[in-house]
Write a protein that binds this DNA or RNA. Structure first.
Lengths: 207, 207
DNA sequence: ATGTCAAGTGACAGTAACTCTCAAAAGGTG
DNA sequence: CACCTTTTGAGAGTTACTGTCACTTGACAT
């Protein structure tokens, strides 16, 4: 029971005020409680009220942090990471390769830092229809972002049909790799699977 | 006002009993009422109760015909058409080409018979997030079906990663073509757009 | 025709995911 | 310590659904 946060009110340790720290704590508490309950009794069988109780906050607060129950599972910050990684690729690289490498790097980063959550989340997405649908929505947002990047690199317009198809194919392939991964108990090498799927695209869908 | 359905109770005209005919009528009535209201005041702003009232049935009945509000828009019978079309392709044809042609034929058939509904539906799917998500779900079902067909043709297992990627890419490309189509006011040639997207895939995502 | 059975319908009650509003509590600041 | 802003919880309301049950209405045999 040693005091973690002591009296000194002058400067909050990590540059964040108490308020901000509490927000992060609450967010985590809700998430953790939710994941634990989902694990134990399933997503659909877990009402938000119960999550609130387990996280020791009011239901209103849960909805303040996560606009929908689905968001408790799906909210992430991967897009900026991916965008940065793709933009950081050398300009000489072909656009498709840039995306390929950028996306792979971003995923590798996630694997290295967040593998536990990635596993739980991917499993839930695979199993719960409502989450699958919502996840596709999120993917569409990533697609818009990547279309922007690819459009810049190629000088094509953002809403160019071909650009969109390239992005949709790449993201779809990655998604398939992830689903395959959970189907096999998340034992295989995810990055390797992703390479296999992207190879199929590079070969023009040859089998 | 010549009597359409007269007394003869022996054999119902089109092979369907009165019961079946009424069911179809009710289904159509609900759908039409819904589309009309969605058009006028938007999807989210239209409660199911109002649709029920407009279609002159009880809310319970609406849910009996369509398990969710989204299904009123999204329920279709395209999958069997697509499956049949793909299976009908000659065995010598490369699997990817078979899917390409089958899917295109199916779509052409839909365009020829149902273009009005296709337009309304696609527009709604584009605009309403809830429908986008649910539609992606439906696409996943089509994907499972097509994976089965492609697996048969290639002798690969149904859950083969490469097979899944091929299907995901093709369906994703078609989806992009459709979205592009509505974005441009549904004036361009849809089949032509689809060809362009599938060409991108065949070229290995070359731009 | 008519009685019987099965299918379809509507009224009603209940659950759960949100949404909105407002007052109390807690953090930040001079 | 007093003041102001942000965050929280309580409560009421909406809407998409689910389940039950009694009632109606086609179907079909007699």
């Amino acid at each position: 029971m040693a005091s973690a946060q002591t009296s000194s009110p002058a400067h909050p340790g990590p540059g964040l005020g108490l308020r901000e720290r509490k927000k992060i704590q609450t967010r985590q508490a809700i998430r953790r409680a939710a994941y634990r309950l989902f694990e134990k009794q399933g997503y659909d069988a877990t009402p938000v009220d119960q999550i609130a109780e387990a996280a020791d906050v009011s239901p209103s607060t849960v909805f303040r942090y996560f606009p929908t129950k689905e968001d408790i599972v799906l909210t992430d910050e991967y897009d900026p990471v991916m965008e940065a990684a793709v933009r950081a690729r050398p300009a000489e690289e072909s656009p498709v390769e840039a995306i390929r490498h950028g996306v792979r790097e971003a995923l590798q980063h996630i694997i290295d830092t967040d593998i536990v959550e990635l596993r739980q989340r991917t499993k839930l997405v695979r199993e719960v229809p409502a989450l699958r649908g919502r996840s596709a929505e999120g993917q569409a947002e990533s697609a818009v972002m990547l279309c922007g990047v690819l459009a810049e690199r190629t000088g094509r317009p953002e809403d160019d049909l071909e650009v969109r198809v390239v992005i949709a194919a790449v993201l779809g392939a990655m998604q398939e790799a992830m689903m395959h991964w959970v189907d096999r108990g998340q034992t295989e090498d995810l990055a390797g699977l992703i390479d296999r799927t992207l190879d199929v695209l590079g070969r023009g869908l040859t089998l």
